[in-house]
Design a protein around this nucleic acid. Structure first.
Length: 488
RNA sequence: CGGGGCGUAGCGCAGUCCGGUUAGCGCACCUGGUUUGGGACCAGGGGGUCGCAGGUUCGAAUCCUGCCGCCCCGACCA
């Protein structure tokens, strides 16, 4: 077997790397911390992007594009914001190269030093709010509901493909509103869209909640998050939606005149999901045989493999099935490769996570049937040619449902509730996963628990956060019941 | 940025301790043939600045010095 994948039980990190590498999602690049997203990985991202883009547009948002470079001075306008990102920014200091007078190669031309250095965007709030200042004068200009699809750079110490890379792709929404309530509702709306996308398309169940002050986005008054549980029982923050209050409006002096011609700072939100979702998708569903993709995001939903190899009779049937499935909006690939044997192809498509495989051999044709295999359970069944298209269409729906249900069951098994610190540590060690516990609401307790156990408060869940006892560590009255977990 | 491991063909590795023919093996690749319902077999073939730069030596993948990169585990973060 050429494509050996490390098992999850043996080494989860290595398993993840093997899947990414061997299924062809991404490669390491020549640039430290940056990856090359390969066609399969990018196709998954494109599908995510297409769906999210539709959801944004259905709720009144439009796309635009802002520069990748941000003048250094912009970053420092909002104190907390700069504090949050200062440590991980790439800085452009020069704009020209020249031949090295002492020998070979090129060097930076010292005479091209920039008067004001430029920051490669780690996020775009500052450049965007600097621009919004010119776009907004009156309540008639509001709300402003803009999204951009872009790359950003955060100079990370330790990187992992998709989960954390120095450069990554994402969307960032930046909206401006006349009232606090409207901005708040916008942040909630996007939070809801993210959760729906994760569950309905990625088949990745998430918990909706608010971040604690210490985990909040730098510059936000409130951060909403969706938190998913990976197969190694660690939490993954999968998307965040921020209520920014008037912080950026004040920093960039963005005011509007209301109906009474009274000037006021506008209210803001920002929100984003990134290529990290691809990593989440991998870690939610995949197994030791390779990638497992939910049908709704799989670039190829069905592959047809002629057995043992393509011939005219088989291809004729294959093309017919393909046409029927295409009619239903299902993407189909027919493997016409004559060199590789079926067994090899089966393994390859399992590695690549294609949800449904149809095998067609001469024996099948004699019996007027095909063999249909599903990736999620590896089950195979013989299905009559007549109605095979309906069978496949139904099966794709069933696989999607099975994946989300399986993930929900897994999360349920790894969700606990504790009342004291001893059992907290016990559960964290033995079972991992999400742990509900009362929290006194102080930064100190939160930090202390992180220090002692590596677990952090993932969120204050929107539902079920009423305290019903004392803080597990401090013994002080609980302010919220929160969810702790070890996290990515 | 700390601790550990590693860098030899596209991938996985042996050889390095103890310097000495033309640097090897498996997979992959190319050609031909035989095969073909779960990763086929046989024969032939192509492919390497041994991570980079210096040094020691008659001679360096092997010894010395410096640098770079990658992986795993931590700290930091989406």
């Amino acid at each position: 077997m050429a494509k050996e994948i490390t098992s999850r039980s043996e080494n989860y990190s290595q398993w993840y790397n093997d899947i990414v590498k061997k299924a062809g999602l991404a490669d390491h690049s020549a640039v430290r911390g940056c990856m090359v997203i390969k066609p399969l990985g990018f196709a998954i991202w494109e599908n995510m992007k297409a769906q999210l883009d539709t959801m944004f547009k259905d709720t009144g948002h439009v796309n635009a594009y802002f520069p990748i470079f941000i003048p250094k001075s912009f970053l420092s306008r909002e104190a907390k914001h700069v504090e949050g990102f200062a440590k991980e920014c790439a800085v452009v200091t020069h704009h020209r190269l020249m031949n090295d007078p002492n020998g070979e190669g090129v060097i930076v031309d010292p005479s091209s030093k920039l008067e004001e250095e430029l920051i490669v965007r780690p996020t775009s709030e500052t450049i965007i709010w600097n621009t919004y200042k010119d776009w907004i004068q009156s309540y008639r200009d509001l709300p402003l509901l803009i999204n951009q699809w872009a790359n950003v750079v955060r100079w990370e110490m330790r990187t992992r493909p998709f989960l954390r890379t120095a450069e990554f792709l994402w969307q960032e929404g930046h909206t401006a509103h006349a009232t606090k309530q409207e901005a708040w509702e916008e942040a909630e709306l996007i939070h809801e869209i993210y959760a729906r996308f994760a569950e309905d398309y990625m088949a990745m169940p998430v918990i909706k909640g608010a971040k604690t002050a210490s985990e909040r986005f730098a510059g936000a008054d409130e951060t909403f998050t969706i938190e998913a549980l990976m197969q190694d029982k660690k939490a993954l923050q999968a998307g965040t939606s921020h209520f920014l209050g008037q912080n950026f409006a004040k920093a960039f002096d963005v005011k509007f005149a209301d109906q009474n011609n009274k000037e006021e700072h506008v209210w803001a939100t920002s929100w984003g999901v990134s290529t990290r979702l691809v990593g989440g998708l991998v870690m939610t569903h995949s197994d030791d045989e390779g990638l497992v993709l939910p049908p709704k995001l799989a670039p190829t939903q069905v592959v047809i493999v002629p057995i043992p190899k393509p011939n005219e009779a088989i291809l004729e049937v294959a093309e017919k099935i393909k046409a029927q499935l295409n009619e239903k909006g299902i993407s189909v690939k027919i493997d016409k490769d004559k060199k590789k044997r079926p067994g090899f192809k089966f393994a390859q498509y399992e590695l690549e996570g294609v949800p449904v495989r149809i095998g067609i051999g001469m024996r099948d044709l004699e019996n007027n049937q095909v063999e249909i295999a599903r990736r999620d359970t590896k089950e195979k069944s013989s299905v009559s040619l007549e109605g095979a298209d309906r069978y496949v269409a139904d099966l794709l729906v069933e696989i999607q449902e099975n994946l989300v249900q399986r993930a929900r069951d897994f999360r349920k098994e790894h969700t606990s509730e504790v009342k004291d610190f001893e059992s907290f540590k016990e559960v964290l060690e033995s079972k991992g996963g999400f742990i509900h516990a009362n929290w006194d609401g102080t930064d100190e307790t939160e930090a202390r628990i992180k220090e002692l156990t590596k677990a952090t408060i993932r969120c204050i869940p929107l539902e079920g956060s009423e305290p019903d006892g004392n803080d597990i560590l401090s013994g002080q009255p609980g302010k919220h019941k929160v969810i702790y977990a070890k996290a990515y």
